[in-house]
Design a protein around this nucleic acid. Structure first.
Lengths: 332, 332
DNA sequence: TTGTAAGCGTTATCAG
DNA sequence: CTGATAACGCTTACAA
């Protein structure tokens, strides 16, 4: 099954491969007649240039890698669209990899991406030290960290002010005169979650509320975990009167548990959640939530990456922090 | 900035490039000593083979294309994971493209994927006639259609029994002694939605209920559309007593609208929805829903594609239809 | 077991 | 404006 190459087009058009190549990208001068003819046979032969061959001579693949933890987390699809819509304008494609927070998987993916010679990388790193990124750096392949940062190599980055978001979320609860405020969320070792936990603690501190260790349920992973955490914390002798949900999955678990316990929101329990996703408005009552500019996070990181890949923009690394806002609904 | 190539490794190991090549994929015989030496210098030079160069000689990229409408639709992330986890085992990577139901975008992506010489394609086609797929077919690039099918080329496919799912959903409502049943959903021209609409109609027919055109709100696109549709249909002089939500976005709109109208579910209105996503259980009350084996749809299509790419399995195209099930909760 | 040389599909250089 | 020719990084006969 011989594939049609530029030579076939050349032969059929009675010109050289060079000429065909020229009409294809259209930079160089080619006589109108010849161009016409070539275009014609390209069509008739149904010829499509081989990007891999191109890549090897141009040292450029027009592909970027997107490495994130799990596209199933409702945060990511919007992020991805922000990235994709931005890079598409410059004709880049994207290879997607899900690490599931597993550094081994992550390294394997990075290796594959490197071998495919991607032009740039956008990554939500599993941890603060990704040694393989050194290899990218050494080859001058631009890296943008999103949502989390890395400390062993200097990269551009786009994150959100998780600390402040959590702070105002917790403060909102305090201002609604709550004193016994629980926090339910995932693993604190994850950068964003750690920041949110800090924000929660700081808000309590600022308002002179002593943190009750029993009200801290950090370390869940699945919705079921969060559901159980909620059940547990509200079964305490002195249960909290409010809860800050540090992530979107925990919000689901909390609502499920509270529904099962027949607790009315906000009468019995107030809630503020992190992440304002489409379905939180369908909850009863609609969730008061911290909203992140998710799409924009994606678009911004893609812009940063494009700048680097096209060698535009400043040479110093940029570290952008976008801000969050509180969307008040009826759960608090 | 010269990149390190196989020749550098060869030179530094005092062997030929051929030998290096051999130790890299490990098929051919190489003396242990030489192998050792080569491996060593590969490490010390931090050499990584160039997959593009490889691709051009092997006529194989180890990349597949995944073309879907919009990863933001909560149906897709799970589908994607089913695909990814399956192809990763065979060391394939995936380029993701979102068409937004736009045939022009779709064609552009397909062209790009073709030029990148992907080994296989998984696609949720925007419509029933995607002419560009002919080009893939002509080049023997395997295609698997997911969730929807195409009629102008023969492909493997994996779909779900949308008709039957909608049928039993509607029937469930009827069996709860509803007669005035509305349907709210997206554009009927989309294969899956059309099938669901058929299922709804057929169920009514079967049970001798005449369909009331006023109860049919098909054509929404955004959550706001569905919210408005709900508002409208329940403002009718003789409003329905139940509603079948033909998609997950419509479910969100319906709950929002019903909440606003202070309608109690299921006391005032019963609901059955299509798609059993994680958050439907957090709704009040939890949604009775048609569940699709989303992950499995993905995994199955990836398996089909792998078979073709590795030239295993039967030569006749396979058209697989997976079944749905009704998950009963409290909204009906 | 190892190496030489040709070839994969492009593009860039340099003459003409 | 057009065409040889070399080069990109790798693999695979074919020889040795």
């Amino acid at each position: 099954m011989k594939s049609i190459t530029i030579k076939d087009v050349a032969k059929n058009s009675k010109v050289s491969a060079t000429t065909v190549s020229r009409v294809i990208h259209g930079n160089s001068k080619v006589s109108p007649k010849v161009r016409e003819k070539v275009l014609e046979t390209i069509k008739s032969l149904n010829y499509f240039p081989n990007e891999n061959a191109r890549a090897i001579v141009n040292k450029r693949t027009n592909v970027i890698g997107l490495v994130l933890t799990d596209i199933s987390n409702p945060f990511y699809p919007t992020l991805l669209r922000g990235i994709e819509n931005t890079i598409n304008k410059s004709n880049f494609s994207m290879i997607l990899c899900n690490t599931d927070e597993n550094p081994t998987k992550e390294e394997r993916f990075l290796r594959i991406l490197l071998e495919k010679r991607i032009d740039g990388l956008i990554i939500v790193p599993t941890g603060p030290d990704i040694s393989f990124l050194k290899t990218f750096e050494a080859r001058n392949i631009p890296i943008v960290c999103v949502d989390r940062v890395v400390r062993n190599v200097e990269t551009d980055s786009v994150v959100v002010d998780n600390f402040h978001g959590a702070f105002i979320a917790t403060e909102k609860l305090i201002q609604s005169s709550h004193q016994r405020i629980a926090i339910i969320g995932g693993n604190k070792n994850i950068f964003t979650i750690g920041e949110r936990f800090r924000g929660y603690t700081e808000a309590l501190d600022t308002h002179g509320i002593v943190t009750n260790q029993d009200y801290i349920k950090m370390g869940g992973f699945t919705i079921e975990d969060y559901e159980q955490d909620t059940l547990n914390v509200f079964s305490l002798a002195t249960p909290p009167t409010a809860v800050f949900s540090a992530g979107n999955l925990s919000t689901i678990g909390i609502y499920i548990a509270l529904n099962k316990m027949k607790k009315k929101i906000p009468r019995d329990v107030s809630i503020v959640g992190f992440d304002d996703l489409v379905w939180v408005e369908a909850l009863t009552p609609p969730l008061t939530a911290i909203s992140q500019p998710i799409y924009q996070i994606g678009a911004t990181s893609a812009q940063l990456l494009l700048q680097r890949m096209l060698h535009e923009g400043p040479s110093e690394k940029q570290n952008i922090m976008l801000s969050t806002s509180l969307v008040i609904r009826e759960s608090c």
